[in-house]
């Protein structure tokens, strides 16, 4: 049986507000980035992370107290909407590390340091046993935050998870990972970092009663200064351009003509 202590498992789920994947991306006229004045939603991989945390709680405690889920985001004021979605899906409380609207997008190392700082702050209260986050964000596709965070904390990590099974007594998790050409099972001790892959689960809709409840759940606001971290980018974006337009093909009349065209295009026989 599970230990009956009030504190069973504390999960931290960092989430990112990103341009929705259904939106058609347009490069801004200055070619410094993309048009951000479009519909945003929670990074889909992070949505899977929130769902997994909620499912873990449902499996372990049938909704009673011992598993706590904290959602965390770093971003401008509007990122609160993303936290509300996480809260509506089932997170208990949230932390918002607010940066100015005009601030440049933080990079993985800065984000990982900020998450580590939040975890250390949490330690003063209850500590964090597990961080579940998306394997990458669909806006910058950098895919490094989870790994950097595990290193900074000195914790074990299970990346690209497609299945997570916990053994609370042994204080470890068996995670199935999606790797090239197949699946790999790893066992990792708590505390640990898990990054989610697409097949881990299918996130739920936020139900209306939970959306209403989410409005009353506590959100702690912090700044990078409070955490003693800098989110200044170390990388400079030089130019953003659209992929070249696809040029249409043409029909040839004969094999000879085709061979001729291939030759002029620089293809030679092997």
């Amino acid at each position: 049986m599970h230990p009956s202590s009030a504190r069973l498992l504390n999960i931290l789920v960092p989430v990112k507000r990103a341009v929705d994947y259904a939106v058609k991306i347009r490069v801004n006229p200055q070619q410094t980035g993309i048009d951000l004045n479009v519909k945003h939603s929670m990074n889909p991989f992070d949505e899977i992370a929130v769902e997994e945390a909620v499912r873990i709680r449902e499996r372990l405690s049938k909704g009673s107290e011992p598993v706590t889920i904290t959602a965390l985001t770093i971003g401008p004021a509007k990122s609160i909407e993303t936290l509300r979605t996480a809260l509506a899906m089932g997170a208990d409380s949230a932390v918002h590390v607010e940066i100015p609207e005009s601030a440049p997008a933080p990079e993985p190392l800065g984000v990982a340091k900020a998450i580590k700082a939040v975890i250390e702050k949490q330690k003063e209260k209850e500590g964090v046993d597990m961080v579940i986050l998306g394997k990458q964000a669909i806006d910058d596709d950098l895919g490094q935050t989870g790994q950097m965070l595990a290193s900074l904390l000195g914790w074990g990590q299970a990346t690209f998870a497609s299945k997570v099974e916990l053994d609370l007594d042994a204080k470890n998790a068996t995670v199935t990972r999606e790797i090239d050409g197949g699946l790999e099972q790893v066992r990792v001790k708590f505390p640990m970092v898990i990054t989610t892959d697409l097949r881990l689960n299918e996130p739920r809709y936020a139900s209306l009663p939970n959306i209403m409840k989410a409005k009353k759940k506590p959100v702690t606001k912090l700044t990078p200064t409070d955490l003693g971290v800098s989110l200044e980018p170390q990388m400079e974006v030089i130019k953003v351009v659209e992929p070249p337009k696809r040029v249409g093909g043409s029909k040839v009349e004969s094999v000879d003509e085709l061979v001729e065209k291939l030759k002029t295009a620089g293809f030679t026989a092997v």
Binding site: D20, A22, V23, S41, M42, Y205, S207, I211
Partner: peptide, 12 residues
């Protein structure tokens, strides 16, 4: 109503 859901993203 007993319950309901609200779309949180264009995909939903």
């Amino acid at each position: 109503i007993t319950t309901g859901v609200m779309a949180q993203s264009p995909a939903q």
